[in-house]
Design a protein around this nucleic acid. Structure first.
Lengths: 142, 142
DNA sequence: TATTGTTATACTCTATAACTATA
DNA sequence: TATAGTTATAGAGTATAACAATA
């Protein structure tokens, strides 16, 4: 038999969708999309990344990301420049405005996480994170 | 500070995307999409559902689902009929072919889950499921 | 009046491939 | 030849609203 109620991909998908809806609604007040937040968060984590690194870190497809970064550049949130080491690559960076916006969004992102983790112990939360990382690694691409 | 490496929405999103890519590639061999699998699995779980119930169970938006079910009906995987109790509602059911296809897909779905849970104990897997359900409920809609 | 489902529109994302510019 | 990124196209998703049928 197949028990949907306990099927892990199902459980992960539905919580991901719910959380995205919730977060997107908050981000809309700032005029940005969830994809843009992902780019901001990734650049806040590692400043000055190549586009392909950014794609891996955000789980956003490269061609989608190329256009998304273009939109964010027009909004003055990020800047693009050719890499010195490899003139094929593009280095993407947060602008001052992008960094400021990110700083204002972090508390909202943390509130989403707190909502998710409500009534979950620190220990269980740590286990959850480890398991989610492990699961991700199990699906590593060829 | 904001630690992306341990940010739960990030961890959930990336494993969800990876798993979806992996599963979608397998489903393509059968000529169906991940969304269609979700509909099949939901109907396998509860036969004879209203479209709005199906939308909740699959996390697929109603207007998207309406068209998706139309496509699946043309593929002879599901049938649609007006409800007896409430003539506004549509009852969606698996056809014989839809049920047969679902039966063949279940082992593939289970293989995806096994890959995800590789090297995770039964006990930890059970905890993981409980926590993911709890997180989903924390985001319940108004 | 409210609810269920369908359809239309505009926008976004994915997949794919063609293209450029470098390596 | 291969890689990094851009752009075009088609297909599928979301968001929203208008609509028909029924409650």
């Amino acid at each position: 038999m197949f028990d949907l109620d306990n099927y892990l991909p199902y459980l992960i998908n539905r919580v991901g969708v719910r959380m995205s809806e919730s977060f997107s609604a908050r981000l809309a007040e700032f005029g940005i999309s969830l994809g843009m937040w992902r780019v901001l968060a990734a650049l806040n984590h590692n400043s000055d990344q190549r586009l392909s690194d950014l794609a891996r870190l955000t789980s956003i497809e490269v061609s989608t990301l190329s256009r998304l970064v273009g939109t964010m550049q027009r909004k003055k949130l990020v800047s693009r420049a050719r890499s010195g080491q490899d003139a094929r690559a593009i280095r993407v960076e947060l602008t001052r405005e992008g960094a400021d916006l990110t700083r204002r969004l972090v508390p909202i992102a943390q509130a989403i996480e707190r909502t998710a983790l409500k009534a979950i112990s620190t220990k269980d939360a740590a286990l959850l994170r480890r398991r989610l990382k492990g699961m991700y690694d199990n699906f590593n691409r060829p």
